[in-house]
Amino acid sequence: MFPAEIEHYFRPQSVGEIHKLLANYPEGDATLIAGGQSLMQAIKSRMLRPVCLIDLQDVADLQGIDNANGLTIGAMTRYAVIAGYDEIPVAYAAIRDAASHVGDRQVRNRGTIGGSVCWNYVASCMPTVVLGTNGCLRISGADGEVREVAADDFFFGPFETACGEDEILLSVSWPTPSGKSGSAYKKWGLATDALPVVGMCVSLSLDGGNICNDARVAIAGLADGGQLVTAGGAALLGFDGNPEAIGPVTAAVIDSVECQSDHWASAVYREQLIRNLGAEVIERAYQRATAAQP
C-alpha cells in the first residue's frame, strides 16, 4: 500500500548524469522512473523495493516528438502529448490510436511511451504498437554508446526487454514512410480503455495499384505479452482492400498464436476478438494507407 523505504532519490538533468548515478549502485538497486503509472503500482505493492529511484522528468533530451526525418518520440514523452500530436504520419497512426486509449486521462497525462515499452507489461498497448509499426529503439549503454535495437529484438517477453538495468531508453523512432503506408490499433477490454484482453495492431504499405506489398501484425493481451505475428503480415501481402480477403488474414493470425482462457475471456472468445478487431484495424490501416501522400 505504501512504498518501502527509498534510500535515495535523484533527479538528473542529462543522460550522462543518469549513467553516473546508475554506476554507483549494484545492479537492481537503482530504478529509473518515467511516468510511474505502472512502476508506482509495483512500488506501492512492494513488488519492487528500489534502494535508489532516479526520476527522468528533467532530462530534456528524452522529451518530445520530432517529425523532421521520419518520426522520433522521446522516451519521456507522455501519452497525452502523443495523443494530441496530429502530425504523426498515417503510417504510424497506430501509435496515436494506442496512446489515446491507454488507461484514463490522468494516466495519459503522466504515463510515457518509454516507461511503457521498458516495463513491457503482459497486457499492454504500447509495446504492441511499437512492434506492429516496426519501431526502432535507441538505447544509451553503460559505456555511453548509443545503440539501435529493432522492435523485433527489443521485447523478450513480459517484463523483459533488451534494455539492460544499466541502460537508458532514449527514444523510439520510425523512418520516413515509404510510399503509401498506414497503420491502426484497437483493443478490447472488459471496460472502455481498460487493459487489452486482445489488442491488434496492423501496419501495411501499398504499391501503386493499392495492393499490399509489406505488412506487419502485432497482438496484445496474450499470455506471452505483446508479440509480432509474422504469419499475419505474410497473409496480408496482396491484400487489395477487399473485405472478403480479411477473414483468411485473421485466420492465419489465429492459427499462429496461442490464445489463453482466463477470468477475462475464454480462448475461443479471444480468437473471435482477433477476427473482429483484425477486420477493423486492417480496414482502417488500409484506408489510411490509400489516403497517404506517397
Partner: peptide, 11 residues
C-alpha cells in the same frame, strides 16, 4: 490532472 497516489511527493 494526475493521480496523486501514483506519485511520490519528491517528484
Amino acid at each position: 490532472a494526475v493521480k496523486s497516489c501514483l506519485m511520490l511527493a519528491v517528484q
